[in-house]
C-alpha cells in the first residue's frame, strides 16, 4: 500500500534517452542529420566549406523568424505578415543609410518600423478581437505595399558612410561562421530561457492552451498578445536588416512567401498550430531541415520549382502527425 505522500511525490522517472526521444526536435534533427550524411555521400558538392557556409547562413534567416513565429503559434495565433515585415525593415534601413544616416540610427528606425507592424497586428487581434489569420494576411499585403511606395521603384545598393559595416554584419563571417548564425544562436539561447523560465514565456503557453482560463486567472492576455506579435515582428525586422547586409541591395520582392518557410520550420520543430506547444530550438532545427532539403534539390539537379511542393507537404504532414499523436492520447 503506497501512501498519499509517495504518490504525490512521485515523478515520472524517465531515462535520459526516453527524455530526448520524447522531444520532436530530436527526430527532426536526426532527419536533417541523415539528409546531410546522404548528401555528403551522394554528391561532392554538399560537404564543401563554401556550400556549408551558404547553408548555415541561409537557414539562419528563416530560423531567426521561426523563433518569433513559434511564440505566436504557441500562443494560438499565426503571423502571415513576417515576409512583408522583412522587406519593410530592409527598405527603411537602406533608405536611411543611403541618405547618410549612421547604421545604428537607421537600424533603430527599421526595428521601430517592424515593432509598429507587430503592435498594429497585436492590437487588432487582441483588442478588436479579429482573427489573426485575417489581420496578418491584410498586413502581408499592406506592409509590402508600403515598402514598395517607400522604395519609389529604385534599387538601393549604396548605403552611405556605414556601407561596409552593414555588409560586414549581414554577409561577413567570424571564425569561419556567418554573422547571421551568431545572431541566431544568441536569439535561440535567450528565447529558450525566456520561454521556459519567465512569466512571459509561461503565459505564451497558457494563452495557447486555454485563452479563457488565462483571462480568468488574471493574466493580462490582451497586452501579452500585443507583445507576442511585436516579438514576431522584431525577429522579422532583425532578419530584414541582416538580409540587407548579406544581399547588398534591396528589391521589393525580398522575403516574398518567406512566411510559409517560417511557419513550416516552426511547425516541423514541434510548434502546435492549435496552440500551447513549441520551442525555440525546435524552430531552429525545423528551419535547418528545410534548408538542407532545399539545398539538396539544387545539388541533385532537381528543379527548384519543387521547393514549394516540399514546404507545403511538410506543413501538412507535420500537422497530420500532430493530429495523429493527439488522437492516440
Amino acid at each position: 500500500m503506497t501512501t498519499l505522500d509517495e504518490i504525490i511525490g512521485q515523478s515520472e522517472h524517465k531515462s535520459v534517452l526516453s527524455r530526448i526521444t520524447g522531444v520532436p526536435a530530436f527526430w527532426v534533427f536526426l532527419a536533417a542529420f541523415v539528409a546531410c550524411l546522404a548528401l555528403t555521400l551522394m554528391t561532392d558538392t554538399f560537404a564543401t566549406p563554401r556550400n556549408l557556409f551558404n547553408v548555415t547562413r541561409n537557414f539562419a534567416f528563416v530560423a531567426i523568424i521561426a523563433v518569433g513565429m513559434t511564440a505566436v503559434i504557441a500562443s494560438g495565433g499565426i503571423d502571415l505578415s513576417v515576409g512583408s515585415t522583412v522587406v519593410l525593415t530592409a527598405m527603411v534601413i537602406s533608405i536611411l543609410m543611403a541618405a547618410g544616416y549612421s547604421f545604428a540610427l537607421s537600424a533603430f528606425a527599421a526595428i521601430c518600423a517592424a515593432l509598429a507592424v507587430g503592435a498594429l497586428n497585436g492590437v487588432l487581434i487582441a483588442y478588436a478581437g479579429m482573427p489573426p489569420f485575417v489581420v496578418t494576411l491584410g498586413m502581408l499585403s499592406a506592409a509590402r505595399s508600403l515598402a514598395m511606395v517607400l522604395s519609389n521603384n529604385k534599387m538601393i545598393y549604396e548605403f552611405g558612410p556605414d556601407h561596409d559595416l552593414l555588409l560586414w554584419l549581414g554577409g561577413g563571417s567570424t571564425f569561419g561562421l556567418p554573422h547571421p548564425l551568431y545572431a541566431l544562436v544568441v536569439l535561440t539561447l535567450v528565447m529558450s530561457f525566456v520561454f521556459r523560465w519567465t512569466r512571459w514565456g509561461q503565459y505564451v503557453y497558457a494563452i495557447g492552451g486555454n485563452e479563457s482560463a488565462a483571462t480568468l486567472s488574471g493574466i493580462a492576455v490582451k497586452r501579452q498578445k500585443v507583445t507576442i506579435y511585436m516579438f514576431s515582428a522584431f525577429t522579422a525586422g532583425l532578419a530584414g536588416i541582416l538580409m540587407t547586409g548579406w544581399l547588398g541591395s534591396v528589391t521589393t520582392n525580398l522575403g516574398q512567401s518567406m512566411e510559409l518557410a517560417v511557419i513550416a520550420a516552426a511547425v516541423i520543430g514541434g510548434a502546435n498550430l492549435a496552440g500551447g506547444e513549441g520551442t525555440a530550438l525546435g524552430a531552429v532545427v525545423g528551419a535547418l531541415l528545410i534548408e538542407v532539403i532545399r539545398n539538396s534539390l539544387i545539388l541533385l539537379g532537381i528543379s527548384t520549382f519543387w521547393q514549394g511542393m516540399f514546404i507545403g507537404t511538410f506543413i501538412i504532414v507535420a500537422v497530420a502527425f500532430d493530429r495523429f499523436r493527439s488522437h492516440r492520447n
Binding site: 512569466r199 482560463a213 486567472s217 506547444e277
Partner: peptide, 19 residues
C-alpha cells in the same frame, strides 16, 4: 469548465497568473 490549461503541469495551473 474548470478553466485549466491542458498543456501545463498541475503545479503551473495551480499558480497560473500568480507564479
Amino acid at each position: 469548465d474548470l478553466a485549466l490549461c491542458n498543456n501545463l503541469t498541475a503545479a503551473s495551473n495551480v499558480f497560473l497568473g500568480r507564479e
